[in-house]
Design a protein around this nucleic acid. Sequence first.
DNA 1: GTCTATAGATCGATAGAC
DNA 2: GTCTATCGATCTATAGAC
Lengths: 189, 189
Amino acid sequence: MARDITEHHDVIPTLGEIFREFGFAGTSLAEITHRTGLGKGSLYHYFPNGKKEMAEVVLDNVAIWFEENVFLPLRESNNPKHGIKVMFKAVDDYFHSGKRICLVGAFSLDNTRDQFACKLNSYFTSWNQALASALKRDGLNANLANDISEDVVTSIQGALVLARSQDNPKVFTRTLKRLKKRIESSAHD
Amino acid sequence: MARDITEHHDVIPTLGEIFREFGFAGTSLAEITHRTGLGKGSLYHYFPNGKKEMAEVVLDNVAIWFEENVFLPLRESNNPKHGIKVMFKAVDDYFHSGKRICLVGAFSLDNTRDQFACKLNSYFTSWNQALASALKRDGLNANLANDISEDVVTSIQGALVLARSQDNPKVFTRTLKRLKKRIESSAHD
DNA sequence: GTCTATAGATCGATAGAC
DNA sequence: GTCTATCGATCTATAGAC
């Protein structure tokens, strides 16, 4: 685990943005020293296991953010409809309305996946289960809730891919709108 | 453009699989020489511009495959319903029922995107337009056709991300099934 | 703690023999 | 055409001064 770097609390988000931009394999320590302003000595002081450990810390922080801002509201909101609304707002903010990619999705696609398999897996599993939980509490039967939940999480990931490939964030915002509608209309089935 | 390599027609698919496994930045010429059995001299003879040109040729081949096996049936099938059926079958085959990722999607996520922006963009645009065309000919109004088309292409990409991250191809096959149903039911609105 | 210097491996790409 | 040898750059990681 990385040492305490509370004095450099801004380093972790920066690392995240670098990994988003270059991918794991494409990120070099030279780029990291440049963007963080920290020399290699400092970086290895905080992250003795180097680049891999930096990525792990970043992924942990992503997980914490989603746990607090997305999964928890979905699981524990008294009003599940409100929890879902919170999710959509948080997701739209987090991904900058389609201009920012999902690090977990990006890491999932090539063989860097193998190094972080557990974290990547649990991110999507947690999201899926939390959303399904909210949908069930909202009155949907288990099968339909799981179905819609997988559909939503899947579509969000795909929309981030398309938005980036087309350089058009609106693909993402359109998808979010479509998904909200689908959830609303499914409640009346 | 790469020189004629008809005598090594099996090299391009191999290159594709390597890029799928390691990503563009993560693919080394050492790995390529190892997996293709060709020395660097041969590789640079066929691909004077090196790794980037190899990726371009691979992306071109992907585009050709989808044009022939997916986009063309969607656009020109006398029976649009049949064209859509062909699409789902071809997609399921191509992505090995969720065990194979989409190279275009993978290249879209990090900054390798910038080098291939045009090819990545046109892949998704062509798919979207071809599917929307089939849906319109099947009787849907333009707005709904575009909506569903974007939904389908997006969901397929997302499903490939999730299937890989969860190491569970069934996420992909479930998604295809869901999308087929959605298209069927939308025809009756 | 943070830096510079540098090791040691690997990178993409080229040269030139055959 | 295909290979080996090798260049110069860049990579991750470490060592050690301060």
